[in-house]
Nucleic acid binder design. Structure first.
Lengths: 239, 239
DNA sequence: AATATATTTGAGCAGCGCTCATTTTTAGTG
DNA sequence: CACTAAAAATGAGCGCTGCTCAAATATATT
């Protein structure tokens, strides 16, 4: 086979692959992973069932290919945010918005991702899949870590933060938050919701946090100060 | 049938039901929901497959029964914590520990719970299941809300907190945190990990939090300190 | 046109969730 | 105890699933 024809035939194959991925993505998103049969996927992609298994060794691997795409989008946006010049608070807000919007668009996928992420099968193939996903996840969270690290360097964030805990709160809160959002059905005000979630986190990690100055606390500090000042005054007089 | 015999026969039936639930719980936990066939469940429970469907109209309902148990445990512990006399910080810590320990023990279940929680099928039965789960979830989160509300009343927490956001961070962080814990494999120091997670939340919601910032406050505190220290020094010399 | 290679196909397999006619067990009665 | 009616348990069988593989078809090379 010549180089040119090899190229065209490989291109043809890749097109087929993409068609199958596309069909599967839509079906998984609309009907869920387990509710979508490989026969339906084949039909939607306009090929026979055997062809699907010709391109993907099993249904799980097909899903993994979809998740790869999914992570690619998440990661590239995250890295864009990191490259742009903006303050740490805005970076976190944008990252959170992107994350929530992506997992919102396809929660069936997220769910399955979580399952794969957990999978501790002895099966070598699924093991490969999961470690690949771990790598994706690591690359993604590395973006988050970079934002935090830079934030500390800039003096926006407190030094000595427990990065893992903050990360768990950030992504976990978003994921859980999506579920409550999904139930109360208001998909439009994602932006508002995200800032409601980011706000408490920001409050606990930023140096500049405008402390909403709870009256009770203000009063207490005020009292304590006055008392010390008064004591100092009397002491100074005595001496 | 007399009342007595009815009672014994019903007791017998309930025992069978519990045996099936027990077998299914173990299998789901060890092999996952989709990887466990109803035939295997029947075999493990020592009955025929038909009997399983005699007690539970389908595999999903069997799972729902298991989740019901699971939530029962979570809720009763949460309500115990609420009844005991202790400060808000400790309450949150205990609630978080209980939550993490429970979902740790059976993450396959948690995963499926999430899926059911999402389910928006038109099927009336699954609809019943999901609304029942929503009710359980609401009862559980009500305990969390009570802790927050009481905390505000006591003056431990800032008034005007966004309860939903805090709740999402709390439970979402725990769930996500469990996954990272599961991967890094250190199931013993749950307690430590929980406090690492609770700490940032506490920092952002409590009134007593040592606020590390606000120049105005810092300056004033600094001045007061210096003044007291100076006074102390002179005092020490005089004596 | 002939041949070699790559791709596609769908009948078939074992296993799935679930049903239901049939059998077995249990409880109540004279 | 035998007899009966109701309750519980059974497993063959149905339509479906994910997946395989020998055969058929399409493509590239000579």
């Amino acid at each position: 086979m010549s180089e040119a024809t090899q190229k065209t035939s490989r291109a043809r194959g890749e097109r087929r692959e993409q068609e199958i991925i596309q069909a599967a993505t839509e079906l998984f998103a609309n009907q869920g992973f387990h509710e979508t049969s490989t026969r339906k996927i084949a039909e939607a992609a306009g090929v026979s069932e055997g062809t699907v298994f010709n391109y993907f060794s099993n249904k799980n691997e097909l899903l993994t290919a979809i998740i790869r795409r999914y992570y690619d989008g998440l990661i590239s946006t995250a890295e864009e945010i990191l490259q742009q010049e903006m303050d740490t608070h805005r970076r976190l807000q944008l990252l959170a918005e992107n994350h929530l919007r992506t997992i919102w668009a396809d929660n069936a996928l997220l769910m399955r991702m979580v399952q794969l992420y957990f999978n501790t099968d002895l099966d070598i193939y699924s093991h490969m899949e999961t470690t690949e996903l771990h790598q994706f996840n690591q690359r993604y969270t590395r973006s988050f870590n970079s934002i935090i690290r830079e934030g500390i360097q800039r003096g926006d964030l407190q030094p000595g933060l427990n990065k893992q805990a903050i990360r768990d709160l950030f992504f976990g809160g978003l994921e859980y938050g999506m579920r409550t959002l999904a139930i109360h059905r208001k998909p439009n005000d994602i932006e508002n919701y995200v800032s409601e979630l980011v706000e408490p986190i920001w409050k606990s990690i930023s140096t500049s946090a405008k402390i909403t100055s709870t009256p009770a606390y203000d009063e207490r500090l005020e009292k304590a100060c006055r008392r010390v000042e008064k004591a100092a005054r009397t002491l100074e007089k005595k001496l």
